[in-house]
Amino acid sequence: MMLSELRAFDRFKVVSIHTGRETGRRLADMGFTNGSEGTVMRCGFLHGPLHVCVGGYQLLVRYSEAAAVEIEVLEYAPHGSRRALGGGQGRGKGRPAAACHVCEDAPAPAGTRPRARPRVTCLDPDEVTGDVQP
């Protein structure tokens, strides 16, 4: 499924980017990478740009660019907040907690595996000096 098919307040996880060159690179640079999670905040009028929150950043992407981002839906927005036609700016009372940082820390919805904590190795263990000012 592609990012462009989502509507306001749907939560998603990026699978991969299906475009190369400048557009693909820009998307990747801005944080659309395998595994990053986000929320659609609002969709522009008539397939206008999407306002998306990915990994804590608020980004604008064109509909055509969003159509190149393959995603996996984590959670659809509650019914009341979605408009019947087109990707609306969700209105109604059942607005979910869609603020940006929440998308990172909210408990994983049922049916998704908890993320494995990645192992990180130091880039340069020898160079660590006392320069750090707490």
Binding site: I17, T19, G20, G24, R25, A28, D29, G35, P118, V120
Partner: peptide, 23 residues
Amino acid sequence: FGRDAEIVVSEQRYAFVHGAVQE
């Protein structure tokens, strides 16, 4: 990898960064 080489490289960078931030 089945995707553009540029994207592969940036995904590797982000994978490291994600881990560093989590930790």
